[in-house]
Design a protein around this nucleic acid. Structure first.
Length: 273
DNA sequence: CGGGCGGCCTGGAGGC
DNA sequence: TGCCTCCAGGCCGCCC
């Protein structure tokens, strides 16, 4: 499941291969993703030079020289990878891009929670999918001080809070659990009960788990692979996520699983208060 | 108005 | 081996 680190890895590996090329043709096999793929997408991007590949939250952004930006979201099960032109189709290969440098990219997404759309580059921040988005966790604007100031006002559980894209983007279930473990805070603790010191630690630990995962090539649970279809290694280093009843890596107590807002939360009863 | 939660979607796992 | 149920989860939209 691609969260911020996985999307960032895809961006880094894709960028040097596709910047300065253009899309020669696009073939759609299915257009009914979470949002229907716009009918005029081809017309807006085919034939124009790719000038940048960016990331905002879990969205991958491909900028074209004609001021159009292709917006790609991988949802839960999406994959974007290079392939040979004669490879047989998987039933979930929905979109195929042929590039001017002879490479071919496929967008595959069994669950179809993904998004493929386009907008005028200058309008991106006002786009419906982007206008409400909060801070980038790896940016310098995301600080312990700011995290403390906003979570102080929140009555909701801290885990829900750090997963809320309105405040900080890109932190999904895996990394929220991991960062709270490192910060020794239980996921059920209310935002306003997090102290200033803890908020500073939580901020640092969110940055730390995201950066660690990027270094290890991301977390590959079920679906994630990079553009060369290689899985990451971070799943081997998870401290609490998906480790119910397994010993805590710090104190050996069995890891506990609870459900919050229909999502599994994992924590150590002994280490996290 | 903050925020909880249902629903979208499919494959895989587990129970019987 | 097959059928059923449940679960995974990002994100919008609904609703309290």
């Amino acid at each position: 499941m691609p969260e911020l680190p996985e999307v960032e890895i895809i961006r880094r590996k894709l960028a040097p291969q596709i910047i300065d090329t253009s899309i020669v043709s696009i073939r759609f096999r299915r257009q009914d993703l979470r949002i229907p793929i716009p009918k005029d997408l081809k017309k807006r991007v085919v034939g124009y030079k790719i000038i940048d590949v960016r990331r905002r939250s879990k969205y991958l952004l491909v900028d074209f020289a004609n001021d159009q930006t292709l917006i790609i979201h991988l949802g839960m099960s999406g994959r974007l990878f290079f392939t040979s032109s004669n490879r047989t189709y998987d039933k979930h290969d929905h979109v195929l891009f042929d590039l001017s440098n002879g490479k071919h990219l496929r967008f595959q997404d069994p669950r179809r929670f993904g998004i493929l759309t386009v907008c005028e580059t200058p309008d991106l921040d006002n786009h419906k999918l982007f206008s409400h988005l909060g801070l980038e966790p790896l940016s310098d604007e995301f600080t312990g001080k700011r995290l403390y100031l906003i979570c102080k006002r929140s009555t909701s559980p801290i885990k829900n809070f750090i997963m809320n894209a309105k405040y900080v983007v890109g932190v999904g279930n895996i990394y929220a659990n991991e960062a709270l473990f490192l910060s020794q805070i239980r996921p059920s603790r209310r935002g306003f009960r997090v102290t200033k010191t803890e908020a500073y630690q939580l901020c640092a630990n969110i940055k730390r788990v995201l950066a660690e995962s990027i270094e290890m090539g991301g977390t590959s649970f079920r679906d994630y692979v990079d553009p060369y279809e290689q899985p990451g290694l971070h799943q081997l280093h998870l401290r609490v996520y998906d480790r119910e009843n397994q010993p805590c890596r710090a104190c050996q107590m069995p890891i506990k699983r609870i459900v919050q807002s229909n999502r599994s939360s994992y924590y150590c009863m002994n280490c996290q208060k």
